[in-house]
Design a protein around this nucleic acid. Structure first.
Lengths: 112, 112
DNA sequence: TAGCAATATGATAAAGTTATCATATGCCTA
DNA sequence: TAGGCATATGATAACTTTATCATATTGCTA
């Protein structure tokens, strides 16, 4: 029995949205940008990540509407789109604090 | 320059938490359980997914604190832990509505 | 306008995740 | 307690995601 198209599309978008969050590189970038907007180079310095790694993942975050870019001469400043992202991240803290131990032993999702 | 352990652990837990959401099987299960608690068999029937696929993913959801189990004779009833999960899912709708098109063309995350 | 700094992009190997199949366990009821 | 239904678990092949390397592009500034 096929699902309604609308339902399927919504599920798929949810999934994409969460995937954007479910990677350490992107999460660290989000945490940094929560404090203030930064350029690619600044993000590289603060995280120690390779430049292309940062660029690739910023591109992903931009596609997903998580960050906005301001061109500033030779630099590009990336800022969090605070409207929904910050409230969401904050909501998690509560849950994560509560389920720390279990999350660390899921088995399906790898904890490295 | 090594990161503080505490910071790292938090990021990692965030990541695990979001991964739990970022899969279609689990999302469909969550959407179903949002309406009412169900047994494994009922979830299989409603989704058309294989039994072991459902079981594996329920196990993941339980580890992550998303669902609670009530043994009921031969059956096990799975219920959403509504305290944080439902508010989070609801928060997304807003963001997803706004960024539909972009999410569909991310490039880093695959849209299948 | 040449050269450099900042950022982006493409291809790919390695790592991680998923569904599936086969099988195991647990709990009823006859 | 035997048999069957409901659910769980383990191993694995197929698929997806990731970081990395090499290279391209863009915009300053001398």
């Amino acid at each position: 029995m096929p699902k309604l198209q609308q339902v399927y599309v919504m599920d798929n978008l949810h999934r994409l949205f969460f995937k954007a969050f479910s990677n350490q590189t992107r999460l660290e970038i989000i945490q940094l940008l929560k404090k203030k907007p930064l350029t690619v180079t600044e993000i590289c310095e603060k995280t120690g990540f390779e430049q292309s790694r940062v660029s690739h993942n910023l591109r992903c975050l931009e596609h997903c509407g998580f960050v906005k870019i301001t061109q500033n001469g030779n630099f590009r400043e990336y800022a969090l789109d605070g409207e929904t992202i910050i409230p969401i991240v904050d909501l998690f803290e509560k849950h994560i604090q509560k389920y720390k131990e279990r999350l660390e032993n899921c088995g399906v999702i790898k904890d490295d």
